[in-house]
Design a protein around this nucleic acid. Structure first.
Lengths: 210, 210
DNA sequence: GGGCCTATGTTATAATACTCACAAAGGAGG
DNA sequence: CCTCCTTTGTGAGTATTATAACATAGGCCC
């Protein structure tokens, strides 16, 4: 299990494989080949095997992979063996939607608190999850051992929220605000820009139209 | 202006440059160098110039780029010169949040309708945008000349919704459901899996911890 | 228990994307 | 008007990622 440099595209695909395997497992499928995985997720068999090869040998030659075992291995690789506590900053439309998004819990992410400075929202709950003022971020983060923060505030506030989260002790940030933010090197940062995704589509539409 | 193969990463960066340039323009900045853009968005000057070089020459040697002109060029490249009409399928938490997300309108995307089969929601409006039953998708899509559909329904319904959108005449789909879906070759498809983004973070946390 | 068959794991090859360094071009100043 | 200075645009070299081909290993059947 050599831990050289793993392409991010590989990690994304592993996530997708895992989701697919979970689905197969629910349907009672016990064994699958790299080719079948590839068909299921829209890839190639070689790519599937290459992705897995970064982390070890999980299959049986001539047979394929055990669905449940492989999924457990991938979940372990992705660091999802244990649950993760998450906080969300911003109780607007997007923040509220993310707070109540069931897909997070299914993959082991537990939203323990939402932060917002709107006094009309503080004290309320979203699907049982309490809304606190941002001033209490550090307290809650330490108390609940939160390692991941999600930023869902308007762009102008994104950097100061990031600073607050870092100060509070969060080790990874998922930023939904359409603004480039900077964090210390030891904090993982990932940006999800909703509009950018639409822009890639319109670019491609323009390319193929000719 | 040779239109060979443009890396997707380049398109993503162009979107980010554009956002940054818009911000600079609002602040009255008129001229900028590739190095300053790089600083602003967290990249390298060479990368900025290379990205732009795919599409032409936009700067003045010894001076830099005109902020407003460059932004207009990038907007044109991304296909954002004209407004795009968009429909969203799914009026749950995520669909509602996306419908009311201001970042889309800022970038030229106009949400004209939401579809949902929940009879308690049909007929209501989200920030003025009407909710219709999915059966009316084809009618509305044609009437409003919609080219882009956003899927924000639970995973099990994602494929049938995609089929419906394709049938209705949509040419690009942004899929938020955590399920691999397939569409005809002439339809652009892009997936945004919210949980996958968190999983990349946890993978990286695991890597750096050792 | 030995040979055949199948799907894996791996190595080699190709394609793609990034980095660096430099020459060319425009503007400013004398 | 010529020279110097700055920053672009580009082309070569490097690194990374994906594709394809192949040898290996495990199971199954006779």
């Amino acid at each position: 299990m050599k831990t050289l440099k793993i392409p991010e595209a590989t990690i994304i695909r592993l996530s997708v494989y895992s989701r697919y395997l979970t689905q197969l497992d629910k349907n009672g499928i016990t064994t699958i080949s790299s080719g079948e995985i590839a068909d299921g997720v829209g890839g190639t068999p070689a790519q599937v095997r290459k992705d897995l090869a970064y982390f070890g040998e999980f299959g049986t030659r001539g047979v394929g992979y055990n669905v449940r075992d492989l999924n457990e291995q991938i979940i372990k690789i992705l660091g999802l063996s244990n649950k993760w506590n998450v906080v969300i900053v911003g109780a607007g439309n997007l923040g509220s939607a993310l707070t109540q998004y069931k897909g997070f819990l299914e993959r082991g992410f537990n939203v323990v608190a939402v932060f917002d400075n709107d006094i009309n929202k503080v004290g309320l709950r979203l699907s049982g999850i309490p809304i606190y003022p941002i001033a209490r971020a550090e307290e809650i983060v330490k108390q609940e051992r939160v390692q991941i923060g999600i930023i869902a505030v308007p762009a102008p506030y994104a950097q100061e929220v990031a600073d607050t989260l870092v100060q509070a002790g969060v080790k990874a940030i998922l930023n939904f605000a359409p603004r480039v933010i900077s964090v210390p090197d030891d904090v993982e940062l990932r940006n999800v820009d909703l509009a950018v995704n639409l822009e890639i589509l319109t670019f491609n539409l323009g390319m193929n139209k000719k």
